[in-house]
Design a protein around this nucleic acid. Structure first.
Lengths: 132, 132, 132, 132
DNA sequence: GTGGTCTAGACCACG
DNA sequence: GTGGTCTAGACCACT
């Protein structure tokens, strides 16, 4: 299984360093089960092209993940998720992350003139539609 | 009226620049109704002390918000939420944009393992909080 | 393409903040066609040296222009004139506003003893200069 | 003769200190003959109200002008233009000032999306109208 | 007391 | 090399 299930994206306006966003997304994917031990990650060059960033930036992210033990690089074949990485789904951290992404989203939307109420209503509609 | 209803806090581990966190929190407060036109924000120096950051960092956040039209500063007396001129925009396009950003947000959050329901609840809490 | 066509200078006796003078000169260059979308501005450090000011002062000017949408910066490569999204506005209101600001300007200049003809000539020179 | 012929105005967005703007306007009025020796200036309080600034700000401007010998304050009767103030109309300075106000105007207009060409045309029209 | 401007310099992110 | 963030601190403008 490849990492196709895991889509990377960047928020260049968030102020969060690109390499940090890549690291976070790999960690989240592992924690949520989107990526499992043995899964292959995109190549450095491929991801660099996909995200329109310099390969060095991707390399740095992969390097840090490797140092922290989440990835293992195998020369000539690619980069893979390590076996048995200790990433228990910490509910407290999960809630913290939820708060963070919601707050950032609301802030961004507010900057475009949308109120929290409008956002809440639109998301409510999505839930309703989903039920049908 | 003071901004007592609006508590600032920093997440130093998130990688988000301090000045960006301040901007986001002001935007959220405005969008949720915690801060209204005419309300005074904490003084630059006071907020700098509260957050344990340099006054220039707070100033920079306030300055960006002023340029973007959310705040108006009055030398010698303080910084206040603007009485927005509110450029009337095409409501159809606005709704379209709202749908777009909400859908994008939900998709990304789903990628991190959050359900639409969780997102809706957290946003609902934001509205509830400011009513207190 | 570089910004060689655009010379920066400071008037330290005018009382106008340095960062403001930089902003104004970029705006004028854009309005007169000396700088066009995609053109690169001098680097922060280079302009700081040229004007004998602190790099942070230049950075601040560039940052404000970026927030206002006139510049776009790309970390590691430089600062460029934006390809403006150009929000389409009501042309009638735009012309009205143009009349308003021109009339106001002429009135104030007259109060300082300048004739409309002198003003017209000086603005004409601005257009001529950038053609060279 | 009172100073009614001399209208004060402030450009709060120019970044130029208010007290500096007041000083400049008095000097210009004297140099251009709008104000003559013996003419009375508005009272500190009146001008403060007119410009919506703190009386201390006006006071500071008048104080500096008095120190420089352009004004003389007569307790109980008001503030007047001094006799024989040495303000020869220096053509070089005049041209410098012309450049400055035109540049600031163009920059401001550019910030609102007007090109130099549009400004030139509109002013040209004003000249044509004036001739009729 | 308020905010505003500027300097000097450290350290980070990115190409 | 590029720009970005932050600190520390001086001095100015204004209420």
């Amino acid at each position: 299984m490849t990492a196709q299930a895991c889509r990377f994206f960047l928020d260049t306006k968030s102020g969060v360093p690109v390499y940090r966003q890549i690291i976070d997304q790999v960690l989240v994917a592992v924690a949520s089960g989107s990526l499992n031990p043995g899964d292959q990650l995109p190549t450095v060059r491929q991801l660099a092209v996909d995200l329109s960033v310099n390969p060095n930036t991707v390399l740095r992210a992969y390097k840090e993940l490797e140092i922290r033990g989440f990835l293992s690089t195998q020369q000539g074949s690619g980069t893979f998720i390590s076996h048995a990485p200790e990433v228990p789904v910490d509910e407290a951290k999960r809630q913290e992350r939820l708060t963070q992404i919601v707050a950032q989203f609301v802030a961004r939307a507010a900057g475009e003139g949308f109120s929290v109420r409008e956002l809440a209503e639109r998301i409510g509609e999505m839930i309703a539609e989903h039920r049908q």
